[in-house]
Design a protein around this nucleic acid. Sequence first.
DNA 1: CTTCACAGGTCAACGGTGTTGTCGTAAGGT
DNA 2: ACCTTACGACAACACCGTTGACCTGTGAAG
Lengths: 239, 239
Amino acid sequence: MSERVVPPAARQRRRPTKQGVVLSAELIVDTALRLIEEHGADALSVRRLGRALGADPSSLYRYFRHTDDLMLAIADELIGRTLRVWRPTGDWRADLRELGLRMHAGALAHPRAAMLSAHRVTGRAHEIQAVEGIIGVLRRAGFPDPEAVRIYHAFVDQALAFGALDSAGTALPRAAREAEAEVWRDTYAHLPADTHPHIAATARHLVASMRSSSYPAALDLLLTAAQTRLDHLRAGTDG
Amino acid sequence: MSERVVPPAARQRRRPTKQGVVLSAELIVDTALRLIEEHGADALSVRRLGRALGADPSSLYRYFRHTDDLMLAIADELIGRTLRVWRPTGDWRADLRELGLRMHAGALAHPRAAMLSAHRVTGRAHEIQAVEGIIGVLRRAGFPDPEAVRIYHAFVDQALAFGALDSAGTALPRAAREAEAEVWRDTYAHLPADTHPHIAATARHLVASMRSSSYPAALDLLLTAAQTRLDHLRAGTDG
DNA sequence: CTTCACAGGTCAACGGTGTTGTCGTAAGGT
DNA sequence: ACCTTACGACAACACCGTTGACCTGTGAAG
């Protein structure tokens, strides 16, 4: 074996595969993302990716040490894409809401990658840029430093956590996802009022609510609480 | 094949395996949890579980239709364990805070299981009991039904999502976890103020905050927002 | 232009996975 | 003591990630 993976800079001998494709780390990442998007999260396997590229599966190991390595590269690409289109306007609440929803949407677009990368701190350029931007928004809004950090931390983790949670939902095989919807419709909607009064009373709302992600609601709750805190601080300072 | 899985009530012929173990859904779930705890999440496979039980892997299909089915049973068992020690006092905010922290702690106690099951709706006994309990607390507190469901949904998902997120963190190999802490200490704590003013200004707080979970803070923010909403509703009704 | 080292694509194999069809046997009801 | 049948065992299938050995065309050096 010795060293299988060669750093991208040193690559030069661009030999095409048997089927005429010239491989590159970029092409592999892009193809992987396309595969995930088109055929669901479980469509991503080294062998399938190889087939989609028109190359032997083992060729990929010349570019990535193992599948995890590939996943991180994919995640990195995703962070970049999300951040690239965020333009803070100066309204802290609207800006954070926008960014939160974008992060969540980005995760849902690539469930498998989101699940694997949510809990990792990369310390890379894109991530640092995001941290600086969010804390900046909060400080400019008037939050004192410890408060800004607390809210930053909760905000980011919430976006990542819900992104991963909801991604896991969409990554399920179609049959399992339908089974879940059925559980709410069939089991919860028909519990008798004498044994389960609260579920019976709210069944209609439950079935409707469970159909969609609770992230927007949770995000708004977080922002509302932050707003309340800010109002409180202002009142304390002004009066 | 016909029907392979027999409902637990109908079981009677308790034939021991070749190695003398008498199987049961309970025993299988318990063994699976033990396996996950001791050897990590990837230690859970039908074949390994069979080996750990002293039974042929295919025997498990007499108790669970497929692996997913087994995962749901594991998840429900965890919910049950958490719920078993929760005693609502009547103070809705304190009760939900208590339950949220318990769920989070329960997830951290079984990181791998939490990660695998956080996103599943089981529709099983313990879960139903939890739903009834939480919505009951909210309705008794005075939230109208749609509001109660919205908050219930956000509350539960947030507890599960953070549970899974933080579990993923603790499930990392020790080396990787230390590397992450280092990133905060070394990279973020030393960014120059002229390029990253906001990070530089709050670095001290950042390093401290990132060491621990943001779930308690996020939970308090959610409860604060709910309280605000409740006050608002009361003011509207009373005045 | 020719030569030739070796990057990088390919092949075959290993040990793992979930899942299913078939079969034998011992447990329980009669 | 017999019969039925639940249920555990076995073998097979198609897939997975990963590796070591092999072979060939590329691109630079002479």
